[in-house]
Simulated assay, not measured.
Amino acid sequence: MTENERVPAERKRRRPTSSGVVLSADLIVDTARELIDTQGAQAFTVRKLGAALGADPSAVYRYFRNTEELLLALADRLIGESMVGFAPSGDWAADLRDFALRAYRSALRHPQIAAFSTVRVTGRPHEQHAVETGIGLLLQAGFDDAHAVRHYHALVDTALGHAALDAGVLRLAPAQRAADERAWQAEYGSLPAGEYPVLHRVRDHLPVMAGSAVESALDLLIAALRSAAPE
């Protein structure tokens, strides 16, 4: 029997596991998140998940047809968390900035998960609601249907692209991150003016390169959208 032929997800296990825990889809997603946060996505297996749940690994397939479905549910959970408390203010540009930063920050809270969640389409309710909201803000700004979708695409890819990049930095060893941060001041800041006149001129500003550019990128994009919005 293949994973896709297993018992459908809607059939629930009601008996407690050997550890006395009653399984649920939410519990499985929560436990998977904890495992990936601590061990990384590459080390994640359903066998480890079963052990953490105190259940036979096959019990997971009563709720999720395969590992792919579970990981997409986990990615969708992060999108849902990013939207908690989001309340449009009526200023579509400010709301878009908040919307995008929420997606970015939700991914950064789980950098190990961001390795896959930022590049997938979940097709699930939380993502559907987020896309509905984001495109709706651009329609509110007066853009036509085609431009609203194109601009939403640019916005969300900017936020999630930076999330993937910055999550990669967070997955580096602390010594690696520290060395990269020092390089902007030590190596780049001491380059000779004769050979590197531009870098020598801006040397005092180069340490900013060690941080995230997500807010600057979003501000530039949203300023462009403000300028392009129909009167």
Rank of each mutant, 00 (worst) to 15 (best):
P230I: 10
S190V: 02
E10T: 03
G123C: 06
L191M: 14
A163M: 05
D204H: 10
G40F: 02
D95P: 05
V22L: 09
R15A: 15
F64N: 00
G90E: 10
G90L: 06
F64V: 01
I79V: 15
E5Y: 12
G189E: 11
P197N: 12
F99Y: 15
R15W: 08
M209Q: 13
A183F: 09
A193Y: 06
D144Q: 07
H126Y: 08
L218P: 00
A107E: 11
D37V: 04
R105D: 15
R6T: 05
R177V: 11
L96K: 01
V29L: 07
F44R: 01
V29F: 01
L101T: 08
R77W: 02
D204I: 02
E68N: 14
L206K: 04
P197V: 05
I135G: 03
I79T: 14
H200E: 14
A146R: 11
V198I: 08
A115N: 05
G20I: 03
L218S: 02
S117G: 09
L221M: 14
L199K: 03
R62I: 02
P125H: 08
L170S: 10
A178E: 15
R226D: 14
N4T: 07
E81G: 12
R182E: 15
R15E: 14
R150T: 10
R15Q: 13
G50P: 01
D56T: 03
D98A: 15
P207R: 06
T2G: 09
A167V: 02
H110Y: 06
L165Q: 09
A93F: 04
V149S: 12
F99I: 09
A164G: 08
A193C: 07
A75V: 02
Y104A: 01
E3C: 11
H153P: 01
F86D: 14
S18R: 10
M1S: 15
S212T: 06
A146Q: 13
M83G: 13
E69C: 11
L35A: 12
R47P: 03
E195N: 08
P125L: 12
D204C: 08
E69A: 15
E195H: 06
Y63H: 11
M209D: 13
Y63A: 02
A55Q: 04
A9Q: 07
V121P: 03
T122Q: 07
A178P: 02
S216G: 14
D180R: 10
G142I: 03
H129E: 15
Y196D: 12
F64D: 00
A193G: 15
V149K: 07
A223R: 03
Q176Y: 07
I222R: 04
D144W: 06
R182C: 13
P8H: 03
T2Q: 10
F44V: 07
L101D: 11
G168C: 06
A73F: 00
E68F: 04
L74W: 00
L220V: 07
A73D: 03
V214P: 00
